[in-house]
Simulated scan of single mutants.
Amino acid sequence: MSETTEALIMEELQRAEDQISDRIADNMKTFGVSSTIGRLLGIIYLNRKPMTLDQLAEETGMSKTRMSQVMRQMIALNIAEKEFVKGSRKEHYRVENDYVQTFISLFTTNWREVVSKNSHLARKLQDQLRNVEQRYDGQFSETAQKKKEELEIELEEWTAYYDWISRLVDFFESGEVLKSVPIRPDGESKNR
């Protein structure tokens, strides 16, 4: 094979790899995650080995400071972690290389936060309704009483909904979801 042919093949393969990386970045928007996180995820994933902030900055054209910020976000989302590389003093980062586990990590991390915020608000509002009832005991008009009862019912529904989401997150985190919805339902093997 000539060097020219090899160069053309490598160029075509690089374009295909770039498209995969770009698609990973685009898909991150679905999870409410920035495309920058998706871009780094794709770059490290396709690199197939841990990378330093310097390498990532060079690859993306962004600053090392920005790379550090994004890597902290990725670690918080449980889709990246620091990895020790023998003989190097620089910090290296690797990403989850299993698409399903990445999905589960993003799904569960984001929804746990939503559940926490909304459950906290529900408790706060329930306390507020109890305080209003205690302060104005016996002074509620029929309209005010009806409104209070509607809000109490709404908060019960709200709480039940976020409890359901919490249990759904547990279902994903435990891996039980994979028993109900297997990756490869026909049992075909993975080539990786």
Rank of each mutant, 00 (worst) to 15 (best):
F172W: 13
E17V: 12
I37Y: 00
E176I: 05
N78Q: 12
Q139D: 13
T60S: 04
A7C: 10
V114T: 14
S141I: 02
E58A: 10
R123L: 05
K90Y: 11
T60W: 01
R48G: 04
Y162P: 03
E188W: 00
E83N: 08
Q14W: 04
E59K: 10
D170P: 01
Y45K: 00
F140Y: 11
E91P: 00
M10N: 15
T60M: 03
L155W: 09
S116Y: 12
I153W: 07
G87E: 05
H92E: 05
I43R: 03
P50N: 09
V33L: 08
K29M: 11
K146R: 15
Q126R: 14
R167A: 06
V177N: 05
D18N: 15
I24P: 00
M51T: 04
Y161E: 14
S174C: 06
E173S: 12
N97H: 04
I9D: 13
K146V: 04
L106K: 02
M10K: 15
S166R: 11
K29L: 15
G87Y: 04
T143P: 01
E81Y: 07
T30Y: 14
D98V: 05
I165N: 06
K146L: 12
L155I: 13
W111K: 13
R112H: 14
E81S: 12
E152W: 05
T65H: 11
L151E: 13
M71G: 03
N78S: 13
E154Q: 14
K124V: 06
V132C: 02
